[in-house]
Design a protein around this nucleic acid. Sequence first.
DNA 1: GTTGAAATCATACTTCC
DNA 2: GGAAGTATGATTTCAAC
Lengths: 161, 161
Amino acid sequence: MDSVTLDRIDLEILDHLQKNSRMSNADLSRELGMAPSGVLERVKKLEQKGVLIQYTARVNPEAVNQNLLAFIFIKVADGLGCDETDRLLAAIEAVQEVHHITGEDCYLVKIRVASSNELMQLMRTAFRDIPNIISTRTTIVLETVKENQHIVIQRETQDDK
Amino acid sequence: MDSVTLDRIDLEILDHLQKNSRMSNADLSRELGMAPSGVLERVKKLEQKGVLIQYTARVNPEAVNQNLLAFIFIKVADGLGCDETDRLLAAIEAVQEVHHITGEDCYLVKIRVASSNELMQLMRTAFRDIPNIISTRTTIVLETVKENQHIVIQRETQDDK
DNA sequence: GTTGAAATCATACTTCC
DNA sequence: GGAAGTATGATTTCAAC
């Protein structure tokens, strides 16, 4: 999944769909100056190749009472963690991200919940049930200034077709 | 933006669009067992109310050579940071997230770049040019197990219409 | 990648509850 | 205030090129 070759048009498609995934294929093809069918075929291929992972709507967390964002550093018994621990952490719905990291701790987990109360309850239940966890260190987010998953599309460093 | 009342149908819409924002309004209305026109009106209102922030496509970072993910803890001179620092950090394209956090450091920044080389260059240029930054502490992600922005839609804790 | 045609969809307007 | 019905123009989709 890193041997995929993308040309300029593919990168333009990715850029547009990152900015608005709900745009119609007709609009997208107008932007690119191509026939809709040709664009659709490229989009389908990008999906098949695993370049386009998902189309998602971003929901304002405040609007659905998910006001607490936190990062949790987790130290586990077996040095680098294991597949089972990975799986258990990822299975928690409120957990949005699970990363293996360098440094003292082994995991960095991003979690979004309704309140500090809910976070405490999760720590006491879901996290407590995961074996191997030695310690956790929680950092609370006071305010989020920026938050997206946009990947910078670098047209110049890519091969053209 | 937290006084918005959403009923069960609104929450179902959010849930569906989070899972696939590119689904047609016709498909969405079939899932909900409603007429397309009614569903469209709700979606438009959710956009207007700022509940639906954006429709975006998730791109596989490896496919576009963005293989390095890192979290940077930043300490600034003026305790809690300021709007100007917020703005400068957020302006860096590779920076996906900027949070004010509790604890020793003031900011937590998530950044995605092509390589450790590019990260180093960014630290030497973009970050170096931000006044007030006292120190940075970088944590490199070795592997990402889970990464999404899905918000848990809690049907039971919301008011029904 | 494009064209063309049939099926399907988006959406604005009206009517209904 | 919604939601459903309706009509028209746009879009999707797939064949053949």
